[in-house]
Amino acid sequence: MNLFEKLYDEYEKVKVRFVGFTTKDTRYDFGIVYTNMFFGKPLVICMQTGRSTLLDPKDVENHEYLQRIFRIDTAEQAADLAEFFSDVLPATALYPEYDY
């Protein structure tokens, strides 16, 4: 019995980066999956909470979004996180070469 209509089922070799860092008052641990899926937006996973999102540089500019999705307590912490992501996320949305 066919219960589901398959939308996609792709295999892809991807680059994954694991980064742990601290700011003056918070520790962060993230996994970043660089993929051509999802319009090339990297999949960012908080290793502490399991919360994840697709991010590109434009998304990083929205501190309120970062604060909400990663459950960050203060605007200052969201700004710190935005600064980190602006350094590690590629500037373009499509990443055919994975040269990071």
Rank of each mutant, 00 (worst) to 15 (best):
D9G: 12
L55Y: 08
M1I: 07
Q48E: 03
R51F: 12
L66K: 00
R27S: 08
T49D: 07
F4N: 00
Y34C: 15
E61S: 05
M37L: 15
E76T: 12
Y28K: 02
P90C: 11
P96R: 03
T92W: 00
I72R: 08
I69D: 02
N36R: 13
D29V: 12
A91H: 11
M37V: 09
L7G: 06
P90F: 02
G31F: 07
K41A: 13
E12Q: 15
A93C: 10
L66R: 01
D99H: 11
I45A: 04
F39D: 14
A93D: 05
Q67N: 00
A75M: 08
Q67G: 06
Y8E: 09
Q67E: 05
H63G: 05
F21W: 06
R51T: 01
L89K: 01
N2I: 06
Y28I: 03
F38V: 14
V33M: 06
Y34Q: 08
Y34N: 05
Y100A: 07
Y11F: 14
C46Q: 02
D25E: 15
F70K: 00
E76M: 12
E97G: 10
V16P: 06
Y11M: 15
D59M: 13
A91L: 10
F85T: 01
L43I: 13
K13A: 14
E64I: 02
Y11G: 15
V44P: 08
I69Y: 02
G40P: 08
V19W: 04
Y98V: 07
G50K: 05
F38L: 15
G50T: 10
T92S: 02
F4T: 01
L94Q: 09
F85M: 10
H63M: 09
E64S: 10
A79W: 01
